[in-house]
Each structure stands twice: as structure tokens, then as C-alpha cells.
Lab assay of single mutants.
Amino acid sequence: TYYTVKSGDTANKIAAQYGVSVANLRSWNGISGDLIFVGQKLIVKKG
């Protein structure tokens, strides 16, 4: 599943929404920190 980042989103918020850990969200998308951008497409695997 892909999720498009919206204004006000955070890695924590997206992870919680899908029931996954922030560490997994980072791993699936090659993100090292919490910096995400509006319009960015993230791979999300439901927990």
C-alpha cells in the first residue's frame, strides 16, 4: 500500500494510523530520520 504524505502528517502519525512501528515505516522507505515531505509517497504495510 502507498500513502501520500499530507500537510501536518508525521512519521509517528502515519505509523499509528496503519498500526505499524515508525522503525518499520522508515525501513520500508529508506528514511533515516523523521523528515518526510508533503506529496511524498510512502510504502506502508498494514500491521
Rank of each mutant, 00 (worst) to 15 (best):
T1C: 10
T1I: 15
T1R: 11
T1A: 12
T1F: 14
T1K: 10
T1N: 10
T1Q: 12
Y2M: 09
Y2N: 05
Y2Q: 07
Y2K: 06
Y2R: 06
Y2D: 04
Y2A: 05
Y3M: 04
Y3V: 07
Y3D: 01
Y3S: 01
Y3I: 08
Y3G: 01
T4C: 11
T4M: 09
T4P: 02
T4E: 09
T4W: 10
T4G: 02
T4H: 08
V5R: 00
V5T: 04
V5W: 05
V5H: 02
V5F: 03
V5E: 01
K6C: 08
K6T: 08
K6H: 07
K6Y: 03
K6E: 08
K6V: 11
K6A: 08
K6M: 10
K6W: 03
K6I: 09
S7V: 14
S7A: 14
S7Q: 14
S7T: 13
S7R: 11
S7N: 12
G8L: 05
G8S: 06
G8Q: 06
G8N: 06
G8Y: 05
G8K: 04
G8V: 03
D9S: 01
D9E: 03
D9L: 00
D9Y: 00
D9G: 00
D9R: 00
D9C: 04
T10Y: 04
T10I: 04
A11F: 15
A11T: 15
A11Q: 11
A11E: 08
A11D: 06
A11R: 01
A11I: 15
N12W: 14
N12S: 15
N12F: 14
N12Y: 15
N12L: 15
N12G: 13
N12T: 15
N12K: 14
N12A: 15
N12H: 14
K13M: 13
K13F: 09
K13P: 01
K13A: 13
I14L: 05
I14Q: 00
I14K: 00
I14W: 03
I14F: 02
I14C: 03
I14D: 00
A15V: 02
A15K: 01
A15F: 03
A15N: 01
A15L: 03
A16H: 10
A16R: 10
A16E: 13
A16F: 09
A16G: 08
A16M: 12
A16S: 11
Q17S: 10
Q17P: 00
Q17W: 12
Q17K: 13
Q17I: 13
Q17C: 11
Q17V: 11
Q17E: 12
Q17H: 10
Y18M: 09
Y18G: 01
Y18D: 00
Y18W: 14
Y18K: 03
Y18P: 00
Y18R: 02
G19P: 00
G19R: 07
G19V: 04
G19T: 04
G19E: 07
G19A: 07
G19H: 09
V20C: 11
V20T: 08
V20L: 10
V20H: 02
S21Q: 06
S21T: 13
S21L: 07
S21I: 05
S21Y: 04
S21A: 07
V22C: 07
V22S: 05
V22P: 08
V22M: 10
V22Q: 05
A23G: 09
A23C: 10
A23M: 09
A23F: 08
A23I: 09
A23R: 08
A23V: 10
N24L: 14
N24M: 14
N24E: 15
N24Y: 07
N24A: 12
L25P: 00
L25R: 00
L25C: 04
L25G: 00
L25W: 00
L25T: 00
L25K: 00
L25M: 04
R26M: 15
R26S: 10
R26K: 14
R26E: 15
R26D: 05
R26Y: 15
S27M: 13
S27Y: 12
S27A: 14
W28A: 03
W28M: 06
W28E: 03
W28F: 03
W28I: 03
W28P: 02
N29H: 01
N29P: 01
N29R: 01
N29D: 01
N29W: 04
N29G: 03
G30A: 11
G30P: 06
G30S: 11
I31V: 07
I31K: 03
I31E: 05
I31F: 14
I31D: 04
I31M: 13
I31Q: 04
I31R: 02
I31L: 15
I31T: 05
S32Y: 11
S32N: 12
S32L: 13
S32D: 13
S32H: 13
S32P: 08
S32K: 14
G33E: 10
G33D: 12
G33Q: 08
G33S: 10
G33P: 07
G33F: 09
G33M: 13
G33C: 09
D34G: 08
D34A: 08
D34Q: 07
D34C: 10
D34E: 10
D34V: 08
D34K: 07
D34Y: 08
L35F: 13
L35S: 13
L35E: 15
L35V: 13
L35Q: 14
L35G: 11
I36P: 04
I36Q: 02
F37E: 10
F37P: 08
F37M: 09
F37T: 10
F37C: 11
V38N: 05
V38F: 05
V38D: 05
V38P: 11
V38Q: 07
V38T: 08
G39T: 04
G39L: 04
G39K: 02
G39V: 04
Q40L: 07
Q40D: 06
Q40V: 06
Q40P: 01
Q40C: 07
Q40K: 05
Q40R: 06
Q40S: 06
Q40H: 05
K41V: 15
K41A: 08
K41P: 05
K41I: 15
K41C: 12
L42I: 09
L42K: 01
L42M: 05
L42A: 01
L42E: 00
I43P: 01
I43Y: 09
I43S: 04
I43M: 10
I43D: 02
I43V: 10
V44D: 01
V44H: 01
V44E: 01
V44Y: 03
V44K: 00
V44I: 14
V44S: 01
K45H: 13
K45E: 10
K45A: 13
K45Q: 12
K45T: 11
K45G: 12
K46N: 12
K46L: 15
K46V: 13
K46F: 14
K46E: 11
K46W: 14
K46C: 12
K46G: 12
G47V: 13
G47E: 13
G47P: 15
G47L: 13
G47W: 11
G47K: 10
G47R: 10
